[in-house]
Nucleic acid binder design. Structure first.
Lengths: 198, 198
DNA sequence: TGCCGACTATGACCGCGGTCATAGTAGCCG
DNA sequence: CGGCTACTATGACCGCGGTCATAGTCGGCA
């Protein structure tokens, strides 16, 4: 999450995602995004003529692609890839962050869904796309591990659902308990799916 | 969710929860709450001298107690109580709402967490309390069904995590798929916990 | 040199919304 | 009746923030 030297436009999208996941969409100001990205304020209307909605949508899209790409790295980190191992890595990304940086941020896609699902169709769609962009690689990884086709998608949805919910609870409680709990409880179920014929 | 004839104060708290779960905390105005509750605007500062923060906190607390009480009703609706049956009822409350009323609202506690966890300590704590108020009865119900003590709490957290995440995804996708998926995939795991000694 | 496009810079506008101040009403009690 | 308490009513204040308008810089290219 620390790719620093990109163009100002990309930095603004990145910063928007960072701020949104901390404060929510409503509480994140355009000027604030520019300042955080160390980008000129005037660039906002130049790069994002669609205004805040466009910026938010791109931030959500960025987050979805980021999450999707992470899956490959998680797999690479596993000596022997298993569903529970993948899920443990997904959870660990959050427990690590919370332990080292505090419970400041949540998932930007969740924030956008909560704040914009009803008010902005385009942002809601961006969130749905982001979830799909994230679920896809997870499901594919499960399939590669021997999980039957249809169940792979279902289990990927379950994994991401449990993760998102646990992020919420952990943030509220300022305790990683919920995250570690879902990893522990869901692991056996996920691994069992590789043995079942489906 | 339709208890109409209470005092104006209670109606405002109820309305706040309704609006928050649709639009998020930031986009919900005080005047809007009063209007929705058909309560006089002047009553806001009278009943909630602590301002918006107090109102939001009470709305979150109300939502937590509401969710906790629902558990008993879900159990009563089950001929033979099982963990998977309880979870299915919890999920069904949402799928029913989404099918009949559209995907307008999410969980108010989730909304408050996303929007206020970083900016307001008291609201974050209210959210944590709400999650606890909700998890408690679920865990107790699991214990009554024969789930061993420590696992009951863990599974309750898992159930609520998965439910919250699936609510998010379903809202974004405007499709109850995620909700029905987690109910289906998690059911067997929950029921299996009643047989295991632990 | 002079034009042009891309990007930057800033101030102004304007609505929204939380809060405060101040006053009004209604009912009860003494 | 006077006064007290609970509640209601409204207008004003004021900062925030998204957007717009307008102008400035800067590099390349002919």
């Amino acid at each position: 999450m620390a790719e620093s030297e990109r163009g100002p436009r990309e930095r603004m999208v990145f910063s928007a995602a960072q701020l949104i996941r901390r404060e929510g969409v409503g509480a994140t100001g355009m000027r604030e995004v520019a300042a955080h990205a160390e980008a000129p304020r005037g660039s906002l209307q130049h790069y994002f003529p669609g205004g805040k909605e466009q910026l938010v949508n791109e931030a959500v899209g960025w987050a979805g692609r980021y999450a999707g790409k992470r899956v490959a790295r998680f797999l690479a980190a596993l000596a022997e890839p298993t569903p529970s191992g993948l899920f443990a890595e997904m959870v660990r990304q959050w427990t690590d962050e919370y332990r080292t940086e505090g419970f400041a941020g949540g998932c930007p896609v969740a924030a956008a869904t909560v704040d914009c699902a009803e008010s902005s169709t385009s942002t809601r769609e961006a969130a749905a796309t982001a979830f799909a962009t994230w679920t896809g690689p997870v499901a594919e990884a499960l399939r590669d591990m021997g999980v039957p086709g249809e169940r792979a998608g279902a289990l990927a949805t379950l994994m991401i659902s449990a993760l998102e919910g646990a992020i919420l609870i952990s943030r509220a409680e300022q305790d990683t308990r919920a995250l570690t709990t879902v990893a522990r409880e869901l692991g056996p179920l996920l691994d069992a799916a590789t043995h079942t014929t489906g």
